[in-house]
Amino acid sequence: MSENPILTIRDLHKSFGDNHVLRGIDLDVKQGDCIAILGASGSGKSTFLRCLNFMETPSDGEITHAGKTIGTVRAGKPRHYPEAELTKVRQKVGMVFQQFNLFPHMTVLGNVIEGLRIVQGMDKASAQTRAHDELARVGLAEKANEYPSRLSGGQKQRVAIARALALAPDLMLFDEPTSALDPELVGEVLNVIRGIADEGRTMLLVTHEVGFAYHVANRVIFMADGVIQEEGPPEQVLKNPQNPRTQAFLARHKQFEF
């Protein structure tokens, strides 16, 4: 177990103008980690996640992915992130969005093979085989030729997961993947995510589903005011929180069942 972490984050800061959203975050993500990130809205948890595949450019700090620190340092200036380097990282760091963001002008299959064909230059036959495997994994193989507009929200999100998995990422980011869904559709998406976690994939998950976090995650992070307030195994953070902010947050989400 002496392996290096997949991702190390050191003193990560992010500001939008005067708004200092992330105020110094440190975290090591090890192979096989399933980390749930909890926090009230405005705590910076989504921004944190979006910095990890550079949807947002960090204002300060270092992110090291697979042993390589991303970006280049320039004297006296903020760290520079060349797009060519970021596109490489993003292929290894899959992301699933709250709003799915499927490409509406492509079929389900087209959505999944797009990255393989266009970004990775894979030949069509191999890309289709891979895409079918991923769609089967999320239980949507028979929807391959449908357009996204014909799918339910839960199905859309499962396609989005297949699209991210198709690139064989070594880390998956889920940004509130069930928040935009009708309550009756949440279960099918959580089941797919749980299946992926059970395979031992490394993932970070921003969620409001405290019960799901308890059952699936091996580590739980509670964020507030742009910093990690409390971190540890779910039994500890969720059942026996030490930080008063965590306690207050969980008191408001008491309805979850373990």
Partner: peptide, 18 residues
């Protein structure tokens, strides 16, 4: 076009012109 489309494209490793 919604910002999410740009983000989804970038998230699978596309460059801006792609």
């Amino acid at each position: 076009i919604e910002k999410g489309q740009w983000e989804a494209a970038r998230a699978i490793g596309m460059q801006r012109p792609q």
